[in-house]
């Protein structure tokens, strides 16, 4: 006798139609993920069957018009830019959340948080544009050419720090004040309270933030495309231009045909599996925190 079964039997046809149309909406929404995955897979199928998975790693360079489909340098571009930005953004995001919660005077904290929220709402194309007209010339004057891994990492850092900061902030504000008060009563100073009590207590929330930030950095397209130079190569240092999976798709989709197009969908599939791994881990962590919170 659950809510659904009995009320549907309320002898009213309209009620039945109504519940079925709602069910339809929810089935449609729920199957969207499957639809997306299956269409990407469908388009990538020729690449899988006719080119084969291994050639994406063993071919000699990315020359899709000449049937050479090596994605490894592009993989490295993606991993290095996302990894670099997460290494920079994690401490920055955590420290600014700590700043907001423990160090800033209340008024400043409020404005600071509002600023971070705005920063999180700025579209990626604007970040990319700013990186292109401000960051890239700056780097170029220091160490040419300018569009580089470094520019990409810095732009991405700026984009994902708000994500990490906001999630960290919300999870450290959920740490019970009794913990903090009893720690202070034990004579711990402010940093010790944060380092020993607050951060360990909110570690799952912080980890969720890091994973979501990583997923965002991996999937980011426009900002990284605009600042990182888009040369397919293994970067030897941070001033070398790189190309990421996302940029590769965005740049070549417009004119890609046949196998080239399938190879691009294939790289989309790689990207999606990579990102979804992190998203699923983040979701699992998020659930864990909510359940722990309920208990």
């Amino acid at each position: 006798m659950t809510l659904s079964s009995n009320n549907i039997s309320s002898h009213s046809k309209t009620d039945l139609y109504f519940s079925w149309s709602l069910r339809g909406c929810s089935i449609l929404a729920g199957s969207l993920l499957l639809l997306v995955i299956s269409f990407i897979l469908h388009e990538a199928w020729p690449a899988l069957t006719q080119i084969g998975l291994t050639r994406f790693f063993t071919d000699n360079g990315w020359f899709p018009t000449e049937a050479s489909y090596e994605l490894t340098p592009i993989f490295w571009g993606t991993i290095l830019s996302a990894g670099g930005s997460i290494i920079l953004a994690t401490p920055l995001g955590m420290l600014s959340a700590i700043f907001c919660h423990f160090y800033a005077p209340p008024l400043l904290a409020r404005w600071y948080r509002r600023m971070i929220e705005l920063l999180a709402g700025i579209p990626s194309v604007v970040y990319g544009f700013w990186g292109l007209v401000v960051l890239v010339p700056l780097i170029s004057s220091w160490h040419p050419p300018g569009p580089s891994l470094l520019a990409g990492v810095l732009t991405l850092t700026l984009m994902i720090t708000p994500t990490i900061m906001l999630i960290t902030h919300s999870s450290i504000s959920q740490v019970p004040t009794t913990y903090i008060h009893s720690a202070v009563a034990l004579g711990l100073n402010r940093w010790a309270v944060i380092w020993r009590i607050v951060l360990p207590a909110s570690r799952i929330g912080i980890l969720t933030g890091i994973f979501l930030g990583l997923a965002r950095a991996l999937g980011e397209t426009l900002a990284i495309l605009m600042v990182s130079g888009n040369v397919v190569q293994y970067p030897s240092h941070v001033f070398d231009p790189i190309r990421t999976l996302t940029a590769n798709i965005a740049l070549e989709m417009a004119f890609a045909l046949d196998h080239h197009r399938a190879a691009l969908f294939m790289s989309g599939l790689f990207l999606m599996s990579l990102v979804l791994c992190f998203v699923i881990v983040a979701e699992a962590l998020r659930r864990k925190t909510t359940y722990a919170g309920v208990k």
């Binding site: 639809l35 979501l212 969908f265």
Partner: peptide
């Protein structure tokens, strides 16, 4: 499924939209 869909990068939606 919706939570996972929320994490799919936008370029993938672009690919899907183009194909579908």
């Amino acid at each position: 499924s919706l939570d996972v869909l929320a994490g799919v990068p936008s370029i993938i939606f672009g690919l899907f939209g183009n194909a579908f």
